[in-house]
Design a protein around this nucleic acid. Structure first.
Length: 238
DNA sequence: CCAGACGTTGTT
DNA sequence: GTCTGG
DNA sequence: CCAGACGTTGTT
DNA sequence: GTCTGG
């Protein structure tokens, strides 16, 4: 994913009460285990922006390396998974980003690397993902706050590239999502749906994004996919 | 009962 | 912490 | 998500 | 093939 909006701008956009985060470097290649700005409700009820590490480490974890497996959470099974169930009830979070990448599936047996696509709003405005967060304490009792991003089925824009997509919450749903009380199962299902058609634009980008060591605005410049295998799948619209 | 996992993606 | 598998 | 490592002994 | 790190 990409994160290029300063925390103060996000704080205004998301109507945050408290900012308790360092300035994170702008990034066009946020990888799992790296910090992102996250908004959640504090114990006193304030809407607070913090920097949390992407990749959930549940409070009960013995080994924080579990984070690698918990970077996404399926909307459909959220309420029954031991790793997420309690968090869905009381530790929901907003994860604002500038855009995100998905890699296009390949014909079986293909050997070339998968083609990355960038997804963002037409005017590059921030997107707000639905997430969950938790806090874990190491042996020295230092807190580690982490988050995961909820996914759902792909909308029509996404389908040519990938069959899943992150849940994007519209501004009208932010308050309800941040309320630290359980939601009715039916309501959860209504909120965790694919983004409306037209919200996102997408285009292929260069393979540089494939290495977490690469970063910079050039990663999100449109880039024609190379290679004879291209075209096996339709190009995404938008 | 205790031990061990706790997840998603995509691929075949 | 809670669930599943043995 | 993708890329890159995947190991031990013993030395400076 | 599978795990770890970014």
């Amino acid at each position: 994913m990409t994160a290029t909006t300063p925390k103060d701008t996000l704080a205004r956009l998301l109507e945050v009460d408290e900012v308790d985060a360092p300035d994170l470097p702008v990034s066009w290649n946020v990888a799992p285990t790296q910090p992102v700005y996250v908004v959640a409700t504090s114990s006193s009820g304030a809407r607070r922006l913090r920097a949390l590490r992407w990749g959930l480490v549940p409070n009960w974890a013995k080994d924080p390396r579990i984070a690698a497996k918990l970077i996404n959470a399926r909307a459909e099974t959220l309420s029954k998974r031991p790793a997420f169930r309690s968090l869905v009830a009381r530790r929901r979070a907003l994860v604002p980003v500038s855009g995100f990448y998905e890699w296009r599936g390949q014909p079986p047996g293909a050997r070339n690397p998968r083609q990355p696509f960038y997804f963002r709003r037409p005017g590059a405005e921030p997107l707000v993902f639905a997430g969950l967060w938790d806090v874990w304490f190491d042996a020295e009792d230092r807190p580690l706050r982490t988050c995961t991003v909820i996914t759902t089925t792909a909308n029509k824009t996404m389908t040519p590239v990938h069959h899943r997509m992150p849940v994007v919450l519209s501004p009208g749903h932010w308050d309800e999502w941040l309320n630290p009380e359980p939601l009715r199962p039916g309501r959860l299902a209504e909120l965790l749906v694919p983004a409306p058609e037209g919200l996102l634009k997408s285009f292929p980008v260069g393979l540089a994004v494939n290495s977490a060591l690469n970063d910079g605005p050039e990663l999100v410049e449109p880039h024609r996919p190379a290679g004879a295998q291209d075209g096996f799948w339709p190009a995404p619209a938008g």
